[in-house]
């Protein structure tokens, strides 16, 4: 699955994903999301709408949350991209992942990588202290299963521990 098209023009793209460099020949229309999922087999980042409406594809670009479905792969070059697969360090879960597990912050798990990536980014954002602030800051990440209350609890738990 190295080349995107058998007949079309492919462009060389160099992406830095989770600290590793990946070189791909891609159809220039390829989004970062499809580059991850279809070409790099990093399927932890989810596609829920492909239109920037659901947050399932949230990844970090240079530490900030971005929607991978609204980012062309070619435009992601030169940025340090972090996906859910790269969130833990040395085989350890990120505290946010553990909190999602303990607070049962998910059901089907499909929105979950996006929720976790948003939640981790939120830790470095100027988000107010209350549950309502977190709800506001997380409203770009939809969860149709409706695990919202547990997601907020998980995030607040981590915030209390890392930002006392």
């Amino acid at each position: 699955m190295g080349t995107a098209t058998e007949h079309g023009v492919a462009v060389d793209v160099e992406l830095r994903i989770n600290g590793a460099l990946a070189r791909l020949a891609l159809d220039p229309r390829t989004t970062l999301l499809d580059a991850l999922r279809e070409h790099l087999r990093l399927t932890g980042t989810k596609k829920g709408c492909d239109h920037g409406q659901c947050g399932a594809c949230t990844v970090h670009a240079d530490g900030r949350r971005v929607l991978a479905c609204l980012t062309l792969a070619v435009a992601a070059q030169g940025k340090a991209i972090t996906t859910i697969e790269g969130l833990g360090r040395d085989g350890e879960l990120h505290p946010m992942q553990q909190a999602f597990l303990d607070h049962d912050g998910f059901q089907c798990g499909y929105c979950t990588p996006g929720q976790i990536m948003s939640a981790v980014a939120l830790l470095g954002e100027p988000c107010g202290p209350n549950d309502d602030h977190v709800r506001e800051c997380m409203s770009g990440n939809l969860c149709r299963c409706g695990a919202y209350a547990n997601i907020v609890a998980a995030i607040q738990d981590v915030r209390r521990r890392v930002q006392p």
Binding site: T43, T45, T83, I84, G88
Partner: peptide
Amino acid sequence: NRVDGMLKITGA
């Protein structure tokens, strides 16, 4: 905790 939780929170 969910027995499939680890797979879901790591994207696996």
